[in-house]
Design a binder for these strands. Structure first.
Lengths: 148, 148
DNA sequence: ATATAAATGCAACAATATTTCATTTAGAAT
DNA sequence: ATTCTAAATGAAATATTGTTGCATTTATAT
């Protein structure tokens, strides 16, 4: 689990990456850190009506470039963004973790705790990064389901 | 590796799924089976200029519904479609394999031969399917690269 | 307090996904 | 073989999403 952060910490994050501390960026950061699931651009648009679509688009792009967040596509192919945990704040992402996409609520969970078992590819392939995708029922939706 | 198929076999496949044997569908099938990498809609459009874009779109959709092909998103989030191998021709896909996305040629390879190591998710998650994504250099691009 | 580069918002454009509907065609029934 | 019908196609239209250009605003260094 990613520890909660306050506004000063968000400002520090922007500082560290030479990004100006603007209101839209701080709001996006605080929204993304307040959830334990990934956030899509539509998610942001639905909550922040006063921020322009293009601005959100650019904020997500610059955050991704800087390694603050990383992109992950859900089952429908829509881009979702999740905050990277500490050690991937460099230019190279270390998002070698497991993504879980719930088939009911569609949320994407980043299971940072889990490490990937190593796997050997056929001869000739030179892998640089791995991501495991799992889909099924998330804890919430599974509970609702079995309660019926 | 998926064994080569002739036109009669493609017709049988369509028959089996109660799909009419039309020219566009047969051409799409033969193109997809002739490659060892996944095919995107743009790929098809570039080769089959005389077939309408919407028709291709619908052919891909119906093939996916029927379990003839399965969808996989590449690094850029564009949908690619790959032929399913024998045992997933049911309604439920068993595409629990490894996808390799080359960062140079962008091709997506389905490494059906490999089976996934089992992995345990945090309590509460009820996974139904797994896919491992690897990205890096494919054999061809790696060769070209090291030849320089 | 001012200058300046960066960020935003808006309009416009491009690409892609999706629906509607008239026409054509495969396959069943005769 | 001919006809019938449901399914498939193609073309146009619309919706959605991704992207760029530019004028205005804003954060921050001076």
């Amino acid at each position: 689990m990613i520890p909660a952060k306050n506004n000063y910490q968000f400002e520090d994050m922007l500082d560290k990456h030479q990004l100006k501390k603007t209101a839209p960026r701080l709001r996006v950061l605080s929204m993304m850190y307040s959830k334990n699931t990934a956030t899509s651009q539509p998610d942001l648009e639905n909550v922040m009506h006063d921020i322009d679509r293009v601005t959100l688009y650019r904020i997500l792009n610059v955050f991704e470039e800087k390694g603050i967040i990383h992109k992950v596509f859900d089952l429908d192919g829509t881009a979702n963004y999740a905050v990277c945990h500490s050690d991937c704040e460099a230019h190279h992402h270390h998002d070698e973790h497991v993504h879980f996409n719930c088939t009911v609520c569609k949320n994407v969970y980043c299971l940072n705790e889990l490490s990937l078992p190593s796997i050997t590819l056929p001869a000739g392939f030179r892998p640089e990064s791995f991501t495991l995708y799992a889909s099924g029922l998330c804890p919430k939706c599974d509970k609702k389901n079995s309660a019926k």
